[in-house]
Amino acid sequence: MTYSRKDLLDLASCSADEINLILDTAERFRAVSEREVKKVPTLRGYTIVNLFFENSTRTRISFELAEKRLSADIVNFSASTSSVSKGETLLDTVENLLAMKIDMVVMRHGASGAPHFLAKHIPVSVINAGDGTHEHPTQGLLDMLTMRRSLGDLKGRKIVIVGDILHSRVARSNVIGLTKLGAEVVLCGPPSLIPVEIDKLGAKVEFNLNRAVEGADVVNILRLQKERQEGGLLPSLRAYSRDWKVERHHLDMMAESGIIMHPGPMNRGVEIAQDVADGPRSVILEQVLNGVAVRMAILYLLSESSKRLRNTDSSTTETPDTDLPNIGLESA
């Protein structure tokens, strides 16, 4: 099994095998971060640009660490979406960067589909670091890695995602990825924040939190964006918390080995109670560590696939199907 795409744009286009390959590769990269010398030469000579059109702390730092631990050279570019409207188009911005010979683009963008648009028009790999309310594939993958490490095989596991599903790219990537791995995904939140016909993506909807968490193996809690009460979607944060804040008593209703997750940043006391966030079932910081490993795996797999795409004129040449790729750990 090899990853043979140019880009990682979303989990919707990934097969279960590809997802497992990324997770298996990430397991191996995870060890790098545990070492004293947290660096491998895998991407030496590679230049990667981190293009953040939307504010981000943890995703940007996680990518940056992953890139540095793979010995890549990196350039960071932060721009608010307003600078886009000031004139330069996304394509012009990126083509200017490419003129300086960039090998890979990591992009966070406020518009759904922006990375798809970019990938269609530029020859280098694009990694989606979150696009609008569409997908956040690396977050989905790190969530799955975290679940897999705690629970083993995810087939048949009950995964509950609580919160603002409508505006959440994390939720979409979770639903799409997890259903591909055979998990049962239940979405819970106020009806105004559940997108229409989400069941067509393979998830179930349960508005009542108590019923949703019953027997859950994972409760993944999303951040409630405070601006959602504008626009008539919610009466108030208080009204939200009353019915959808995950509290201590919910833990007892979960499966015995069930875990609590949150992609961060948390609004403690709004969507998650203090003692839930910090309790023994919480694997929230584990998610953060896994994030670096998953991103290292993706950067590595994409660098390999784009090498292959460059070197083969036709797709008829197959690379040998090894069990797992040699990721250069030994030469560290």
Binding site: A12, S112, G113, D131, R172, P195, V196, E197, I198, K200
Partner: peptide, 15 residues
């Protein structure tokens, strides 16, 4: 259009 496709694509829909 607001429907299964807009949900999948994460684009705000026009019902």
């Amino acid at each position: 259009h607001e429907g299964p496709a807009s949900t999948r694509l994460g684009l705000k829909g026009i019902p």
